[in-house]
Design a protein around this nucleic acid. Sequence first.
RNA 1: GCGGACGUGGCGAAACCGGUAGACGCAGCGGACUUAAAAUCCGCUUCCCCUGGAGUGCGGGUUCGAGUCCCGCCGUCCGCACCA
Length: 862
Amino acid sequence: MSRFNALKADAHWQRVWDERRTFAADDASTKPRAYVLEMFPYPSGKIHMGHVRNYTMGDVLARYRRMTGHEVLHPMGWDAFGMPAENAAMEKGVHPGTWTRANIAAMKAQLKRLGFALDWTRELATCEPNYYGHEQALFLDLFAGGLVYRKESSVNWDPVDMTVLANEQVIDGRGWRSGAVVEKRKLSQWFLKITDFADELLDGLGKLEHWPDKVRLMQENWIGKSQGLKFSFVLSSPLPLAGGVGGGPVATDPDTSPPPAPPASGRGEDSVEVFTTRPDTIFGASFVAVAADHPIARALAEGNPAAAAFIERCKQGGTTAAELETQEKLGFDTGLTAQHPLDSSWQLPIYIANFVLMEYGTGAVFGVPAHDQRDFDFARKYGLTIKRVVSDGATDEPAFTDDEAYTGAGTIVNSHFLDGMTIEDAKRAVIDRAEVEGWGTGTTVFRLRDWGVSRQRYWGTPIPIIHCGACGVVPVPQDQLPVILPDDVSFAIPGNPLDRHPTWKHVACPSCGADAVRETDTLDTFVDSSWYFIRFASQPDDQPFDRAEAERWLPVAQYIGGVEHAILHLLYARFWTRALRHIGKLDIAEPFAGLFTQGMVTHETYKSSDGRWLAPDDVRDGTEIATGHPITVGRVEKMSKSKKNTIDPEPIVDQYGADAVRWFMLSDSPPERDLPWSEAGIEGSWRFVQRLWRLFGADIDDVTGDDLPLRKLAHRSTTGVAEAIEGLQFNKAVALLYTLANAIEKAPASADRRTAIDTLLRLASPMVPHLAEEAWGMAGREGLIADAPWPTVDPALLVDDEVTIAVQVNGKLRDTLVVAKGTPKDVLETTALASDKVIRLLEGQSPRKVIVVPDRLVNIVA
RNA sequence: GCGGACGUGGCGAAACCGGUAGACGCAGCGGACUUAAAAUCCGCUUCCCCUGGAGUGCGGGUUCGAGUCCCGCCGUCCGCACCA
């Protein structure tokens, strides 16, 4: 019998699936629906092993759901805007669109070769006007709904590339591409009001039962809800102001919508507002500190060179983790003092401090050195009072002699009316009193910031806004959408080609007809990926989606992707979905009912004798092929170009076929953990594919006879594999299939064996679909196995009538008994005590105690 | 610093509610077939001082019984990070 010819079979069945549109989802179907989605790829040009693993997992689930009678939506598209296309344009002189579309074509061909059960009729690319035009419409809907605003904000500016960089693109203070020192610049940026949904997004996490705890926790921390007290200290002397500092820390653009945040300096120029989560320690305060860019600091700097110099110094501080770790707490005594809200005779010094962040809370804090480590360090350095107000039970003395701050539980002391209270009670008491007396309010503060979506880039969705000298910000009218990116752009010089395009940005104001200019910023590509799963579910020409149609598919039943998207993408998509609900476009709260984050594909790393990284192809039998020198084998790490330990899937598919690659992706490692790629592993997968082929191809006509144990195993395997796939435990499903295949190979010919082979074929078909179709066709079966049902299970065959009982003496295994299931306790005990080994161990003594667990074990305590 | 996850053979890993630790795969070893090799098939494969003993990172505890539960360490990885 011949080998399984994967190359031939793969191509054949992929064509058949395509021609028959086997995996096109039917919107009109009455079957239960299952929306299975993997995170769509960025079209970099080539798929990598991570894609293969991700899409194989989704594919097995999608194919399994089809077999269990679901109408499955399993689409694929392209997250096609983004910087790499512009970089390619700059480096190779190719248009970003040309580059991107060629990459899409290449990657689509690669994906097709893996035989994924995808509905290609719904393919979309975010860089096409028929996608981003609808996104512009949604953006304007959100704008009309009050969820979009514009304000000036500080950005990372690369002065060489003349563009804004994301925080992730700033490495040690320099642009990742240009290497230029990044500047902070104030630019007018568009923001989405994700903070309006902070509480909702946080609460919603609790209902996402089918999400990994890890991701929920990460989002919870990211949203960062803190409850406490916001209150004002009255300044003891008026600020030496030159014309006033204005309302808040952030000067607002004249043409903006109202910014959501109230001015941070509270009641005006004669007070400083602070936020604290520890109002219970209010009597332990010994100073007030404001951020370097706080209005008070800025006002002071105008007339005080020393203050100005200090603020400059703060700004130079590094922002990397390591720098923050070691950076000294620095303060500048302003000479100003603030009056304690509960004691008008108590004056606290006001410092400008480098550890206070303008972005969080009110940009000002009060310091309680005894019970906050940072305040403690600061107080030690500047000789400020350290007063105990929380007792750990050891002492109540106000003099605090410990070496570090005490942040644990305890009783409030040295605090007037709070004395004797617990921390929680004291918090409540101070907030109540502040609210009654009117100097503060109980407040919730979030770490989450509004989402800045402006990017000074060409290859993105144009923000559909027109700036008119007379009318201000004017949305592009719906009938003028989409705002299409011009094709005739040049990347010869840095900066945003849209901004310097000769004609594109010049338009008549839709409102008054005067000369006006388009917004030349484009949207963050995370906007594109915040709603693509809705467009997959419904894609009419005249609107972003049909509400009823989308609601029939959504939410996504199972979403699968990398954990690197745990926060940004998944939080933005959750926000966008809730924002659409808020404006009445779609009544879905959570876009992804189930989430699974898969592990990476890893590989050994190799280094030459002189320390160069070597690719797996450069290495054979512990030596470098080119030089013959011995190599060192390094850790197993994530595949990366820099360490040269990548394996390109394409030649692997050429050599072993899609099914062997798919099988390998599912074998051995639990899907959420890393999968170490190995040559031996793919060889093993290939051998198993061939073994299956031999099993399926054997002559099995006209055999009769029973094989009850095998029949039972086939039924047990069917439930086992089903449970494993539903739980996304593909490694367990694979192990069960090996076990079943092993048993079938060993079993003599019988009718049960023939049926077991059919069962194995169906159970394995989601994983090795090409082989399964080929075997199915060869056996002369009707239609496609892709359309065949999952085997039915006879529950009676799942129970064993014989069980093996463990016989322990003092908890150690000494013997086993095979007895009928349900054998009564006393019989088990008698049988166990009659065991030769037990008799020998007991040495004639009678047991002190015997524990019997029916169908499980007998433990004899001697 | 804060938060979290994880530590089981040479390797990837299983082990349900506390009940026979190591299923399944890889690698390895022995054998069959072959002129030979590949492929395939059969068997072995946690360790040791092997009629027995030890063993799930280390040290304690609870229990008739602990990989699983509790306490304390050690280590690895991940996320956030001057968050008031």
